[in-house]
Design a protein around this nucleic acid. Structure first.
Lengths: 313, 313
DNA sequence: TGGTCACTTAAAGAAAACTTAACTGAAGTG
DNA sequence: CACTTCAGTTAAGTTTTCTTTAAGTGACCA
């Protein structure tokens, strides 16, 4: 980057305020100076650039072509600086790390092991913001996000956590019970549990898709059905023996490891999407974010797959 | 936006230079001041924020946690301001509008009618940058782009120009010649022309796909084949009577209107992608960009479909 | 016609930023 | 082990820049 040769910064700030208010008076007020000072600043900028930025009308001002041209860029530049200073203020007082994740992954995966992160980093005040809504890392006060998706987010560094597979799962008691589960056909004797959390957000194989791949006709016409709109509730229902759930391996990990759930069949359908850790490229060196990322990678024992797409056409 | 209460801007600039160079000396040089001045500025910023930003080592400096936290944001903020001033410089001297478009759409659509834009806006120096490579509107010196895609680009305003369909096309002489083209089956008697320009960039129906939809078996085993790696060359070959091309309606528009090409069959396969005009959201009010956009919309006689996706997770 | 409103201008005063020059303390050098 | 060098610091004084005060302009409004 060459020596930038920027105009006097105070005059740029004055221009920014004036362009936003479309009034020198209001701008002067915002900056706690007299209108005279502001007028002088704008003129200084115009002289420096050799270009008129405002047309002075009788009792108003309007941006010239050139003013119109640079106003958005100047505004964004200062907004970026401003946001950055806010970040620092936030960090100065407390030491919060806001983690955004969907409800299911939070309940089944993140929350049960987050205590390890907190005890490893007692100075970091970790907060989980659990929501289905997409979160804007640049706007909302969120530091890192765990997202199920394709792993492409503008300006973000993303690291794959794990892939997702869909397969039937149930309580171990069910497998060898009075209606045993030996072949996919046996599923017709059981209540089929599912969830529609993802509908409208992303595609995920459903019972029909699984039965098709398993070569079972009319599998879905079986014993009964039970549907949830929160993924972890569906799993919990299966744990309690209510039936067989078409579960997601990543979410059910803990229950599978603990023996509360088993996968009676080999057939797993891989999802198009995976779980990713996402955070702003520009904040990759933030100590708190690094700490969380390192802990997370350690926790899953995998290594990172980095992808850093930028905005391109 | 509230009154920002930013720290002294000069001290921010000093911090930016120092953080980039990791050296007060070099930073001072960049800003054409003495090291003493720079030292003073950094201290001023630290005092203002109440936070140490650099650790002073014996003969070097290093960023503290807090310094590390804000450095990227500060840098980006100034980079934005800098880019904006560069834009103004560019516009001051000349009045260039750089249009980026793929080779085929340039040759067949844009170039033949761009003279109308230039004669309508004689003060604008329009330049076409024709390339297959993706262009970064924020980095490269490109003002607007015409792209074939899904119409989702970060930070960009996109307006749909037209959809794209794929269907056989040939010289009108061929249709009623000694090997007439009455039904899709007749294609077996003709040389099949195609292009693979798009391969690796996006999916587009090929001859196999078209034959399948037309219900023709083994259509592709016909008379002969001719393949190009530039889309407009394939069209030109068809115009000259070399055979039947699986043409793209948007690209062939001009040749179809002029009667140089005809579409012997009704079956058109719609492409997943469309042509879009793309430009940075922040430059939507740029007079040159507005002028081009308005002319373009006028030219196609359609109205705009605006989509402005931001970076979200 | 006279008052008001938004911005401008000029001169003087206040505040900031910069330089000079002397200082510190560690690393490299002979 | 002294001597030099090098990066950064500090303090005092100066220069530059910015800001205010106060008077001025010109269009709009009553």
């Amino acid at each position: 980057m060459p020596p930038d040769r920027l105009p006097p910064l105070n005059s740029l700030r004055a221009f920014n305020a004036a362009a936003r208010h479309m009034s020198f008076q209001d701008a002067a007020e915002e900056l706690f100076v007299t209108p005279a000072a502001l007028s002088y600043q704008i003129r200084q900028l115009e002289d420096h650039l050799g270009v008129k930025l405002f047309n002075r009308l009788n009792r108003a001002v309007e941006l010239t072509e050139m003013g119109l041209l640079i106003a958005p860029g100047i505004r964004e530049g200062f907004a970026r600086l401003s946001k950055t200073m806010q970040q620092l203020e936030r960090r100065k007082s407390s030491n919060v790390l806001v983690i955004s994740a969907g409800p299911a992954i939070t309940a089944k995966w993140l929350a049960p092991r987050l205590y390890r992160f907190v005890s490893k980093h007692p100075n970091i005040d970790a907060r989980v913001s659990s929501s289905v809504k997409k979160v804007d890392l640049e706007e909302d006060d969120v530091d890192v996000a765990i997202r199920f998706g394709a792993g492409k987010y503008a300006h973000c560094r993303t690291e794959k956590l794990f892939d997702e597979y869909v397969t039937p799962m149930c309580s171990p008691a069910l497998v060898n019970g009075d209606r045993p589960l030996r072949t996919p056909d046996d599923l017709k004797n059981h209540t089929l549990i599912s969830d529609d959390t993802h509908v409208g957000f992303f595609d995920l194989a459903d019972w029909n898709a699984w039965f098709e791949q398993a070569g079972v006709k009319d599998g879905n016409q079986g014993h009964g059905k039970l549907q949830f709109n929160v993924a972890d509730h569906a799993l919990d229902a299966a744990i309690s023996g209510a039936g067989v759930v078409l579960g997601r391996t990543a979410l059910a990990q803990g229950d599978l490891d603990a023996g509360r759930l088993v996968m009676p069949f080999d057939l797993k359908i891989k999802a198009d999407f995976s779980f990713f850790l996402v955070y702003l490229e520009s904040r990759a060196e933030d100590p708190n974010i690094r700490a969380f990322r390192d802990w997370l990678m350690d926790e899953i024992g995998g290594y990172a797959t980095r992808e850093t797409p930028g905005p391109a056409v």
